[in-house]
Design a protein around this nucleic acid. Structure first.
Length: 891
RNA sequence: GGGAGCGUGCCGGAAUUGGUAGACGGACUCGACUCAAAAUCGAGCGCCUUCGGGCAUGUGGGUUCGAGUCCCACCGCUCCCACCA
């Protein structure tokens, strides 16, 4: 093999990237003529380094975008930067760099890294959330929320991250009470903060989930759980005095089981409940105070542990059960949460496990009021019986089944004035204030006489000052900037103070996908006609970690903006692909717990700690710095090229599954691309070219006004009609069958559920078949095979496909070719192997005419050697014929 | 406790939706080429076998001519939510 014929990605990839940029190959067409396709990746935070998770995300979206273009869609495939956020500030504090400069530099370097991947992104539509031409509209949208009554400020118990020195939204605190970013244990603080009223859309956000058929079930379930709608009733328990007379106060509880109200043996409040102090009787005051003090010193985590001891004390007061008039004691307990429902619960030990444990611990009565349907036995055996059933000991409701009893008791409560039906949500309003510098300023002014005054829209953006001095760890420097803070009230002109909190960065990312439709608009965030033309996003691709946060907020934004008349659709993302993570090989000394870098492991077949010589644990885990298991995309591209990296990532695992990065497999992927290179080299060495074959039929598709249009080259579309020789050799027929089988299979794999891994394997099969038959094929058949292979390869390995397309003399870019359509005639075979089964077990094969009918197949099968041998001359009792597949003979 | 999903060779993973289990690739073994190595090319590669075949998709049942696929029970793993009343 000559030196010149080696596949050298480093020589071809950069060249094509530049050529495509000059040709404007990736520009978004201005007109969409109803065939638009919006392919979107979740935009990255510009940390400075591209990691493999990014690469996987963007390569998947790129294949989808490229395929859509070749299928005749007008494609929007943009990219941008989620550029506000804490790492920039931390860099400023740690290294003295200015957050904005640091961010801009990172963007420049990551953009360069992205370009190396050969992504067909329209960079003219790039958005950067920390630039005022973008955040001006984030502020404008905030004012829309404010005007709609969906943004408000209130004093609330909030999650405070002591490390990042800011508040967090509920969604940003994990199950263990830790911050999503810093990992610090979150504290509770009372602060006056800005909220968005996402709860006003709870029903819609929940009810529209079933519409999202293109979303993974998992994500929809997670959102449904997060919204957490439960319907039940609020019931009022009147507080009575020592003589049993109403004191005028009432405790309202929320319950999903109003049917169990006759089983109430106590009512219990959260220790923080506002009525606790007032209702505590003097004899219980010391006990209650001590208990509240104890609880307040517990962490949220301890407090909410499910198997917690369920401590509590009576506060002395009693309440009247409105259903049966019984007087029951009022308690406070640590297992009741102040934030959920009314902060008060009716205790029904027989039918709620928590109440049961509480009652047992504190020797409160347990009275069963529900029994299993169709049984007079009591299912109640030591634990609470929480299933629905039939009511007993429930007065006029005896004998009703739980569902109707719920309705009847709620109705009675409503008519008698002691309760009402109630739908309760787990979802809380979205806390968006952050006491940080590097974020979008909240555009309001606080005036002593006018209150909260929105900054007039013509004064937007409220610029975030750059080059500010950082006083030290944590605190935002904005509040110290007198020039910024002191302003005249836009309303009355009196001296007023500017809001210095910034917005949660999730505000910025809740609408960026809308801005891409009209990124340069200086009059509006986007024009309605444009946003409605491109959106909803046809295919969104990103990590599962945003299943709740970003995806829920974006849905909320879309619905609000729809209600404001700014756009005309209900849901932002029609289809969602949540790609799996990329895992790196990880070496761990299980004795010391330390992680070892792969480079320090001398012999991977016998991995040992370089210091102690101990045998290491080897496994795959999500790439992270602390585990030394990361693989740098740039290094991989330098070594093998972007096409190999792309092919490997797509081939190694289905897109939604985790992917194990394995260098040996990358090597194998590189070899496959080399084989394709040699295959085409061999063909051109023999003088084959697409021009000699197609001649003038291949047309340049550069458009009249120098702009590239989406009118695709007719080459691929005409393949099926090409004048093939009237007689094909067996090798040629095999080759054509392989080509058109691959076209069918790959087209299927790229439809609906994306199966890139099997699509790549089909490319491998095709190249294997070509290796076998190409040399024996005539020019038209070989040309069809080569052209098809390169067109099918183009979305996956764009540089190599383009290079070889040009070498073969193809006209125009390979990326402007129309996606091929399989020729059914090529798939037809004269004979097919028929499987002969005896009683369902495969016993042999039989070559039969492909068009044989059932009767013929049965006859051939019965006459076959296999049948003679296994049936020993007896006629089968049953024959099942599946044409084209098998005959099953049952003796 | 509630929910979602998964269990297939040494490994990553296929399997037209009930029809030849293990496609495609990696690793490995053998062979060709080479002084040699790499690269490349060819062959083999689930387990057992008396070479007829038998057994195999987490386990045990069931439905069916036929089950990785459908049903029931169980075991194991992953993720999400969780004292939410």
């Amino acid at each position: 093999m000559t030196e010149a014929s080696r596949y050298r990605p480093e020589q071809i990839e950069r060249r094509w990237q530049q050529a495509w940029a000059e040709q404007g190959l990736d520009h978004t067409p201005a007109e969409t003529d109803g065939t638009s396709f919006y392919a979107l990746s979740m935009f990255p935070y510009p940390s400075g380094n591209l990691h493999m998770g990014h690469v996987r995300n963007y390569v998947i979206t790129d294949v989808i975008a490229r395929t859509a273009r070749m299928r005749g869609h007008r494609v929007l495939h943009p990219m941008g930067w989620d550029a506000f956020g804490l790492p920039a500030e931390n860099a400023a504090i740690e290294r003295g760099v200015e957050p904005g400069d640091w961010t801009d530099r990172n963007i420049a370097s990551m953009r360069e890294q992205l370009r190396q991947l050969g992504l067909s992104i329209d960079w003219d539509r790039e958005v950067t959330t920390c630039h005022s031409d973008y955040y001006r509209w984030t502020q404008w949208l905030f004012l829309q929320f404010l005007e709609a009554g969906l943004a408000y400020r209130r004093e609330a118990t909030v999650n405070w991250d002591p490390v990042d020195q800011t508040v967090l939204a509920n969604e940003q605190v994990d199950g263990e009470g830790r911050s999503w970013r810093s990992g610090a244990l979150v504290e509770k603080r009372q602060l006056r903060q800005w909220f968005l009223k996402i709860t006003a859309y709870a029903d819609q956000l929940l009810d529209d989930l079933p519409k999202l058929e293109g979303w993974p079930e998992r994500v929809r379930t997670m959102q449904a759980n997060w919204i957490g709608r439960s319907s039940g009733a609020e019931l009022d328990f009147a507080v009575v005095d020592g003589e049993g007379q109403p004191s005028g106060e009432a405790i309202t509880v929320f319950t999903t089981r109003p049917d169990t109200i006759f089983g109430v043996s106590y009512v219990v409040l959260a220790p923080e409940h506002p009525l606790v102090a007032r209702l505590t009787t003097p004899d219980q005051a010391i006990t209650v105070e001590a208990f509240c003090d104890l609880v307040s010193r517990q962490s949220d985590q301890e407090r909410t542990a499910e198997d917690g001891p369920k401590r509590g004390v009576p506060i002395g007061a009693r309440v009247r059960n409105p259903a049966n008039g019984e007087l029951v004691p009022l308690w406070i307990a640590d297992y009741v949460l102040a934030e959920y429902g009314t902060g008060a619960v009716m205790g029904v030990p027989a039918h709620d496990q928590r109440d049961f444990l509480f009652a047992r611990r504190h020797e409160l009565p347990v009275r069963q009021v529900i029994i299993p349907e169709g049984s007079d036995e009591h299912a109640f055996e030591g634990g609470a019986w929480t299933e629905p059933g039939v009511l007993i000991h429930s007065g006029r409701f005896d004998g009703l089944a739980s569902p109707s009893a719920k309705a009847a008791i709620t109705a009675a409560a409503e008519s008698e004035g002691w309760g009402r039906g109630k739908v309760q949500y787990r979802l809380r309003d979205w806390l968006i204030s952050r006491q940080r510098y590097w974020g979008c300023p909240i555009p309001v002014i606080h005036c002593a006489s006018c209150g909260v005054v929105p900054v007039p829209t013509e004064q937007l953006p409220v610029e975030l000052p750059r080059q500010v001095a950082f006083s030290g760890k944590g605190a935002s420097p904005l509040a110290q900037l007198e020039d910024l803070v002191n302003v005249a009230c836009p309303c009355c002109g009196q001296p007023a103070r500017r809001e210095t909190d910034t917005m949660d960065t999730f505000m910025c990312s809740s609408w960026y996908y809308l801005r891409y439709s009209d990124p340069h608009n200086t009059a509006l965030p986007f024009e309605r006609s444009k946003v409605d033309r491109w959106l909803p996003v046809d295919q969104y691709v990103g990590g599962i970690e945003h299943a709740i946060l970003h995806l829920l907020y974006s849905r909320f934004f879309t619905k609000v903006l729809r209600d404001r008349g700014l756009l005309g659709f209900d849901e932002p993302f029609t289809r969602l692909l949540t790609q799996g993570m990329v895992q790196g090989i990880t070496y761990k000394n299980s004795h010391s717990g330390k992680y070892i870098a792969p480079a320090d492991v001398a012999d991977p077949t016998d991995p040992r700690d370089p210091n102690s010589g101990e045998l290491l644990e080897v496994f795959f885990e999500k790439m992270s710095k602390s585990k030394y298991n990361g693989v740098d995309p740039t290094a991989v591209i330098d070594r093998y090229g972007a096409d190999t990296a792309r092919m490997f990532i797509l081939f190694k695992a289905p897109p939604e599954k985790d992917l194990e990065w394995d260098d040996a497999d990358v090597e194998g992927q590189f070899r496959f691309l080399q084989r394709i290179w040699r295959l085409v080299e061999g063909a051109t060495d023999r003088g084959l070219s697409l021009q000699s074959w197609r001649g003038a039929a291949v047309q340049d598709n550069s458009d009249r006004d120098g702009e590239i249009s989406n009118s695709l080259s007719p080459l691929a579309a005409q393949l099926a009609n090409f004048a093939l020789p009237s007689e094909l050799s067996p090798a040629e027929r095999d080759l054509r069958r392989a080509v058109h089988t691959a076209i069918t299979a790959i087209s299927d794999d790229l439809d609906g559920d994306y199966q890139f891994n099997t699509a790549v394997s089909e490319l491998m099969k095709l190249s294997n078949a070509m290796g076998e038959h190409l040399e024996a094929a005539s020019v038209p058949v070989a040309g069809e095979a080569l052209a098809s292979l390169l067109i099918l390869l183009a979305p996956f390995a764009p540089h190599l496909a383009e290079e070889l397309w040009q070498k073969l003399g193809g006209t125009g870019s390979v990326h402007r070719q129309r996606w091929p359509v399989a020729d059914p005639a090529a798939l037809i075979r004269d004979t097919i192997p028929l499987v002969i089964q005896i009683k369902g077990k495969v016993r042999g094969n039989l070559e039969v005419p492909a068009d044989a009918d059932k009767a013929t197949l049965e006859k051939l099968a019965l006459e076959s050697e296999v049948a003679l041998r296994w049936l020993e001359g007896k006629a089968p009792s049953r024959v099942i014929v599946v044409p084209g597949k098998l005959v099953n003979l049952v003796p």
